[in-house]
Amino acid sequence: MLLTIVILSFFLGCAAGFIMHRSDFCMAGMFRDLFLFRSLAMLRVLLLLIVASMVLFELARLFGLVRLPFPLFAPPSLVTPIGGALFGVGMVLAGGCAIGTLYKMGAGSLPSLLAFVGLLAGSAFYAEFHPWWMQLSRATRLASQVSLPQMLGVSPTLAVALFVVAAGCVLFRWFRAGKLDQPAFAEGYLQPWRAALWLALLGLGSALLVGMPFGITTAYAKMGGYLESLAIPGHVASLAYFIDEPFRFTHPFLGFSLQGGAGPRLDGIVVVQFPVVFGILCGSAFSAARLKEWKFSAKVPLKQCFWALFGGMLMGLGARLVPGCNVWHLMGGAPMLAGQSLLFIAALFPGAWLGSRILVKYVV
């Protein structure tokens, strides 16, 4: 069973990497373009992804195929926006989000490779103050429930239906007006709105297979912890974040159990997240190679390399503070109206605004 999960998760990752490369589906760019170019074009596509995922997850729940809220989502806390804002700054400076960095790196981007290194470093650095941060997070919780329907005591189907109808009317008007299409002349280009629908289906596939949506950033922390352990193994072994195994999960229908954490060891995180990470890299590389676009160039301005690395570090740290990255919250939490995810998304906007200001002043 575990081998089957590894193989299928890898192919889900491959499909996601292929689709994102063909559509240039960069969530960092969606927020950045709002502040740099006053463009809502790609944010409209992001709303479509959330709405489509919301419909699919709720239908799967009604048919008894998944259980919502998904496991590992925590109740909202006042400190959640801090991580979200840091992540927003970092993804703009890095030129890609947690998953965008992967598919661009797979296509041969040096700045994305440096951003990936920064992600590992930032994720590992969080371990230095993890116990204190968790105490603060628990002390500032805003509710004991995970999702808005739970907090309000209403049917999740009713909440989803109201949101889908309201957002669906807006999306339909945008579609009729041609505002979801992007002008493109590149060979093999996939319209982002089509990519959003495919990614929603892949997210459902992850939920059915693993019992939860796509998640990749604990794998980054694990990689960072492993590299750190090569230099200072005793220190890594003493940190609670690398000792704990908060990932304890039994699939509600398939019956298998997984457990693990960010520590440098083989466990459930390796089974669930590593195949997706490597799959995205392979899918993107395959897409770029098919289009004869794959190339690696070291001729990148030193200033751009520095900010990509620094942005990756901010992203890695922000993802651990929340915890979870934009993929986890936008494709998993927001569709089930998780309070933690909604706070994270709200904080991405001021973070992306600040990142855009830094980008214009010091990078471009």
Rank of each mutant, 00 (worst) to 15 (best):
G333K: 02
Q304C: 11
L266V: 14
S257V: 13
R290A: 00
A231C: 13
L230W: 04
G316Y: 06
V322F: 11
F274Q: 07
A288F: 10
L227F: 14
R290M: 01
A308R: 02
I269R: 01
Q273S: 08
N326V: 07
V236Y: 04
F306E: 03
S287K: 02
H235Y: 01
G333S: 12
M313K: 02
A298T: 14
G324Y: 02
S287W: 05
L258G: 02
F296K: 01
F306M: 04
P275F: 06
V271T: 14
G316D: 08
F306K: 00
K303P: 14
F296Y: 14
A240D: 11
G318T: 08
R265S: 13
G234F: 07
A308H: 04
F296T: 12
V270C: 10
E245A: 07
A298Q: 12
S287I: 00
W307A: 01
I269H: 05
F249T: 09
G263E: 02
F286Q: 01
L302Y: 12
V271L: 10
F278Q: 03
G263Q: 06
V276I: 14
M331H: 06
Q273C: 04
V322E: 00
R320L: 09
G234N: 15
F306L: 03
C305R: 07
D267F: 05
G268I: 04
G324R: 00
T250R: 07
A231I: 09
G333H: 09
L281E: 13
L321F: 11
L314R: 02
F249S: 02
L291P: 01
V322S: 10
Q304R: 15
S229Q: 11
F306T: 08
P323H: 11
H329C: 00
P301G: 00
M313T: 14
L230C: 11
W294M: 06
V327M: 07
L230E: 03
L330W: 14
P264D: 10
A289M: 12
G261P: 07
F286R: 00
D267G: 10
G312V: 02
V277K: 00
L254C: 13
A298E: 15
E245T: 06
L254F: 15
R320Y: 05
P301A: 01
A288C: 08
G333L: 11
W294F: 10
V322Y: 09
Q259S: 12
V300R: 03
Q304L: 12
L254E: 14
L258E: 08
V272H: 09
V277F: 06
M331C: 04
W294H: 04
L321V: 13
Q273E: 14
A308S: 06
G261M: 11
V322R: 03
V272D: 03
G263L: 00
G324P: 05
C282I: 04
L309Q: 06
R248D: 09
Y241M: 07
V322N: 01
